[in-house]
Simulated assay, not measured.
Amino acid sequence: MARTRYASDRGLTSRMLVTMFLLGLVYVVAVGAFFVFVPQWAFFALAVAAVFLLAQYFFSDRMTLFAMHGRIVTPDEAPELHGVIDRICALSDAPKPQVAIADTDVPNAFATGRNQKKAVVCVTTGLLRRLDPVELEGVLAHEMAHVAHRDVAVMTIASFLGICAGLVTRFGLQIGLFGGFNRRSNDQNTGLILLAVIAASALAYAVSFMLTRALSRYRELSADRAAALLTGRPSALASALTKVHGEIARIPTNDLRTAQAFNAFFFTPAFGKGFSVSSLFSTHPSLDKRLAQLSKISAQLSQGA
C-alpha cells in the first residue's frame, strides 16, 4: 500500500497476493495447454496478449474516461468538487489525482489509473446533483482509498487472464461452429484438439472470474473502511450508499445497461430495482453487508471518542 494516512489493511494485501499467486498458477496451466495443443499459434497469441496487457495497464485511465464520456475539469470549472478532493488529500497526505466529470444521470463515481501519479477520480453529474458535500466527501474518500491501495493496477492485471481466456473460448467456439470440429490434419483429430483448447480456456476463465470477483468484493469493503476511518464520518458514507442505491433503481433500464460494463470500477454497481444475482458472482458486497460494517465502525469511533 502507498504511504498515506489511509488505514492499512493487511487482509487486503494478503488477499491480493494469494489471488495473484493462484492466477499465476492458472496462467501457467493455460499457457502450457496452449503450447501443447497449438504450438504453432502459441508465440503469436502470447505476443498479442502482452500488447493488450501493456495497453490496458498504461492507458486504463484514458480508455475508461473515454468510454464513460468523462472529461478532466479544472478548479475553475468545478470549484466545489476540487475543494472536496483537496480536503481528502490534506487528510490522507496523498497526492492530488486528476478530477473528472462524466455527463450521465447514473449517480456513481470511479477511480482509475495505474498509480497515484496517474490517478483520475471521476464523478457523474447525477451523483453531484444528489449528494450533499459531506456524503460526496465519503464517496470520494472511498475512491481515493482504491488509488492508495493500488487496487486499479492489481485488478487490471488480475482480470487480464480472464479476458484473454474468454476471448480464446469465444473464438474457438466460432471456429468450431464453422467446421473446425470436423476437420482432420496430419492424422490428428483437429476437432478434438480445438475442443481441448476451448475446455482449458473456459476453465481458466471460470477460475480467474471467481478469484477476481472475490477480491473485488473485499477491496470494496476495505475502501469503505479506509474512507470511514479517514473522514471519521461512517454515517455519511452509509447515507451516500443508501441514497445512491435508491436513486439507481429509478434510472431508466437503457441507461443502466450502458453503465453496467464499468460496475467493477464504480462506487456501487449500476443494477436496477429487482435485479438479483448470486453474491458469488458480484463485483460488490451487498448493501446490507457494507452498511453493517459502517455501523460497526461508527460504534467503535463513538467508544473511542
Rank of each mutant, 00 (worst) to 15 (best):
R225F: 01
G304R: 15
A240G: 10
A50P: 04
L167Y: 12
G138Q: 02
F181M: 04
S201L: 06
F281R: 05
F265Y: 12
T74C: 14
V139D: 11
M20K: 08
S295Y: 14
M68V: 11
F265H: 13
V120F: 10
A202P: 05
Q188P: 02
I163D: 10
F275W: 15
T125D: 01
A261P: 10
K118W: 10
D61T: 07
V106D: 14
A153I: 09
E77S: 13
A78W: 06
D9L: 11
D86K: 14
N186E: 15
N182V: 14
A227K: 04
D187Q: 15
R219F: 00
D151C: 03
S239L: 09
A90E: 11
V123M: 05
A42S: 05
Q40F: 14
L140S: 03
S60C: 07
F43P: 00
E137C: 04
E247D: 13
F281W: 14
R130C: 13
A206Y: 00
G246A: 06
L17Q: 13
D86L: 02
V31S: 00
S278Q: 06
L161M: 07
R10C: 06
T124L: 06
A145F: 00
I88P: 13
V244T: 15
G172A: 10
R130F: 09
F262D: 09
C122M: 03
P95D: 02
M68Q: 13
R219C: 05
I85M: 06
N189E: 14
I85T: 11
L195Y: 05
T268M: 14
Q116A: 15
N108L: 02
P75D: 02
G126A: 06
S295A: 11
S286H: 03
E143I: 06
A158P: 07
R250N: 12
Q98P: 01
A223S: 00
S302L: 14
S286L: 13
A111K: 03
G24C: 05
L221W: 09
S216Y: 00
S14E: 13
T212K: 09
S298C: 05
P252I: 03
S235Y: 03
E77H: 14
R233L: 09
A47R: 00
G162D: 14
T104W: 03
M63P: 09
F35Y: 10
K273P: 08
V277S: 10
M16V: 08
D76G: 04
P107M: 06
A30C: 12
T112K: 02
G70Y: 01
A158T: 03
